[in-house]
Design a protein around this nucleic acid. Structure first.
Lengths: 348, 348
DNA sequence: TAATGGTGCGCAAACGTTTGCCCGTTTTTT
DNA sequence: AAAAAACGGGCAAACGTTTGCGCACCATTA
């Protein structure tokens, strides 16, 4: 029974008509008579005919496929994003070619090449953490393969991207804590190399200004996102003159490390010490001691937007729009979410 | 600069030689002289030539692409598995076409069709929860597209699969609790419709027999995996005559619900009431009150095995092995892991 | 009646490769 | 010196589609 799939050619031979007629009949082309059209369709379904996409790809110069390159599939943020991307692609009849860079610049470059060879119509990329040169992305320009970056944006000119701005979320977070009566608010920030750290710091400062409070730089400490580094950061904050009663942490992992450490120090979470964090982890719902509030970054939404933009771009291109000079730069505002009611806010 | 990619044909014209010569030269075919070979390669790299994969696919009848269909990309288990699959595929020069069924039988069927049309060389599937008919998978047989199922296995004959057997892990889990001195051990199991529930129950019973203890059916209660249902199950257990001092829960979500509820009831976790669960969640590392031990299901390993099997199958097929009658049926034994030392056991 | 227009379909090129087969030189063998 | 072998390379088919163009036939119109 190991039959090769039926082709348009076989149908033509069996019906003793030409290949082109079969093709047109299957596409309901007006110039084909009703009777032949029906005959063709009948036989096609009898033979279980399905068009060979690879042939169509070759012929049309497009593959209805988008490539997605991101650092780590198993990270909650990205798996949520890819889930959204796949949903979007599916809705618009595209397929997703997936690859992970493992934050390795070399691999990222290879993947871009591979995607190009596979003739993906467009690319969705969240850049590897330690990618320093962006030539591999620039190269794609001359082949007219559009790229939309999301979340991790390279320092390039004239690119499409969607990212999440942490500043407002941070302002809200700090304001939230101020409103709750805290007067000394600490921040365990990430490494200065990440632009996200800058946004958080800016937000913190702006919140202080906005509330006519004075900014104490010693209340912002950095960590490299590891557990030990987080513990050290917390220790430093707790030892400072103006010992904070609330802390904003760079992300949920840091928050959990800090909460764990604080608990060991016999501090009561949300009483002695209150936390606000940035939501990377969906599972925070299931925990007992959690940050009182989180700044949601909407991974699902980011993936969705990015995919939609790319697909729009491709649709334009297919309709013959030659050259667009405008670039999509979508900033999704982060949003403070109180964690008791978080369930209703699930990004999906 | 919007240049279309260079083709083998252009190279041939520029060098005034034939297309076939160029092709062979690029493949280091012995029948091409050194000088022409070098000329060809030089020009090729100058023109930034890259072979058009879609053309090669059409010509060779294979795409070096495997399709992956699973229920939910954003679930930790699957995102871990897909991460492994992508790694394997990459190593063996394959690419991954990804799609999620959202546990919808109809969509799953469409996806199988789509994958077929895209001419994937093979398929990796974790079946949708409520798929009842498997015809869409059977159909692929006649097109000689191999499928390897993983984790969620359909009730079909003659299939390749890799799955995780919970029985041994459960025996170990119960034995572990017995060894710690518990004499009344409860189980919050999943719905009877899931085969995984059966395995867990079997394991529980066997552990009792093995330790020459009598099995009390009232200590096993079911829940539908929701929070409220879990609470009810726990209440039921706590109200039973032989109030358990330890509980085995169906998965980590259930464990967390139960732990939360128990905490509210002023029970001390791991003192008044000890938990053992099944590890679906990588994040359990970050929590304070966690099950004392977990039965690890190795999602990364499952994905890896499944991908390797599929790729082996494809390699065989490509080397002309006509018909294999043997089917891979890989059972990965689950393994009990004490959670303090869990970090070292990370599946990856 | 002759010109016009519509209808229904076929021819063949094109997409970019790979590869079996053939053929003309040169080199080696006997 | 003649035959055989090796070398280097070209021709063309094939993979399965889509689509511009051309053509024959029949039915209108003037």
């Amino acid at each position: 029974m190991r039959s090769k799939p039926a082709t348009i050619k076989e149908i033509a031979q069996l019906l003793k008509i030409s290949i082109s007629t079969v093709s047109r009949a299957l596409h309901d082309h007006p110039s084909i008579g009703l009777t032949t059209r029906q005959k063709v369709k009948k036989l096609a379904s009898e033979l279980n005919y399905e068009p060979n996409q690879t042939a169509i790809f070759l012929q049309q110069g497009r593959t209805l496929t988008i490539g997605v390159i991101l650092p780590e599939l198993s990270e909650a943020f990205f798996s949520s994003a890819i889930s959204a991307i796949e949903d979007c692609a599916y809705k618009r009849n595209y397929t997703v070619l997936l690859a992970q860079s493992h934050d390795d610049e070399q691999k990222e470059k290879q993947l871009v090449e591979k995607m190009k060879n596979h003739r993906v119509d467009g690319l969705l990329v969240s850049v590897s953490k330690n990618t320093s040169s962006y030539q591999h992305f620039e190269n794609l320009r001359q082949y007219d393969i559009p790229i939309v970056f999301f979340d991790r944006i390279p320092a390039m000119q004239n690119i499409h991207y969607v990212a999440c701005n942490m500043e407002i979320g941070t302002i809200d977070a700090v304001s939230y804590l101020l409103k709750k009566g805290h007067r000394s608010i600490g921040m365990i920030n990430g490494p200065a190399t990440l632009s996200a750290s800058g946004e958080r710091k800016e937000g913190y400062i702006k919140a202080m200004i906005k509330n006519r409070l004075k900014f104490d730089p010693s209340l912002i400490v950095s960590c490299d996102l590891t557990e030990t580094s987080t513990q050290a950061a917390l220790d430093e904050l707790l030892a400072s003159k103006r010992k904070p009663t609330a802390i904003v942490t760079f992300n949920d992992y840091v928050a959990l490390f800090a909460i764990k450490h604080a608990t060991n120090l016999k501090l009561k979470i949300n009483e002695d010490l209150e936390f606000v964090s940035y939501a990377n982890l969906p599972l925070i719902n299931y925990m007992e001691s959690i940050p009182a509030a989180s700044v949601e970054q909407f991974p699902y939404l980011q993936g969705q937007k990015a995919a939609d933009i790319l697909l729009d771009l491709l649709a334009q291109k297919h309709q013959g729009v030659t050259e667009q000079t405008a670039y999509y730069k979508i900033i999704i505002e982060s949003q403070l979410v109180e964690n008791s009611s978080m369930t209703g806010f699930k990004s999906k």
